[in-house]
Design a binder for these strands. Structure first.
Length: 258
DNA sequence: ACCCATGTTCAGCT
DNA sequence: TAGCTGAACATGGG
């Protein structure tokens, strides 16, 4: 479910509840449910993969993690909702989410959200300057820099910009960075459309692909970087180059065979 | 039936 | 002490 685009769809679905009043709140989340009852939904917002239901006295912050889902006016047959909100005519259920009540959204800088109109690529580039040794694949997954980017957008943006995932940030030229910034946002919004059509993977050029959509060369796949998420890259078009060959960490890596 | 996956936090170790 | 690793959460699709 949950990269930034999916959360925008969630927002769209839940905007239906704006101005409706919560009459009952329950679930197995450890929350002060009393704070939610008889409160009107003032707004629903997103920040990257985070989702917020704003009430007059508190804000419900939700994160779908990997398996999170929600239903409107229906129940999943096998699992209990972590949070269930009942309105006069409607019911909203969240499953396997992380949820907490917060007082303010101040810590969520909308300039860092790649799908927000306030998204500021220059700010992201400044942040990149502070982490020259980091692999670009890790930097893209850093929610403080590219809030909303997940493993699919990461891989596709790198493929679109023709950057090897294990390139150090310092080795990504400014020109390449600019291309990357554009591709991230462009693909994120395309993702939104594909998500609605259920064709995300089909429309990927590298992620979970066998061959490169552009040049038909093999797509390579490996866990990479600090985050150990899977990288997919084109053997021909995304060549690893570095300006320096420092870094003596030639740890032969723990390879698992199964 | 098994493996894998659009994510993140945290305990425990070096 | 900072950094890394694996576990934990717990569902669903191929």
């Amino acid at each position: 479910m949950p990269e930034g685009p999916s959360i925008l769809l969630l927002q769209r679905d839940l905007s239906y509840f704006i101005n409706k009043t919560i009459l009952e709140a329950e679930g197995y989340a450890e929350l002060d449910y009393d704070k939610l009852v008889n409160r009107k939904v003032l707004d629903v917002k997103t920040w990257g993969k985070h989702f917020f239901i704003c009430l007059s006295n508190t804000i419900i912050e939700l994160h779908l993690q990997l398996f999170g889902s929600y239903t409107i006016n229906e129940r999943k047959p096998k699992i209990n909702p972590k949070l269930s909100l009942k309105f006069a005519k409607d019911e909203l259920n969240f499953y396997v989410v992380r949820v907490k009540l917060i007082d303010s959204m101040d810590e969520f800088d909308e300039r860092g959200d790649v799908m927000n109109t306030a998204w500021d690529p220059e700010l992201a580039k400044q942040k990149l300057k502070t982490i020259p040794e980091t692999f670009i694949c890790d930097a893209l997954m850093d929610q403080h820099i590219f809030s909303g980017v997940g493993n699919i957008i990461k891989n596709e943006a790198l493929w679109l910009a023709k950057i090897h995932p294990l390139t150090r940030v310092k080795d990504v030229t400014v020109a390449k960075q600019n291309i990357l910034m554009k591709e991230i946002v462009k693909f994120a919004f395309e993702f939104l459309q594909y998500k609605e059509e259920g064709t995300v993977i089909k429309n990927c050029g590298a992620y979970q692909q066998e061959i490169c959509r552009r040049c038909k060369a093999p797509i390579l796949k490996a866990e990479g970087g600090k985050t150990k998420r899977k990288n997919y890259w084109c053997e021909k078009e995304q060549i690893l180059k570095s300006t320096t060959e420092t870094n003596g960490k030639s740890k032969k890596s723990t390879r698992k065979k199964g």
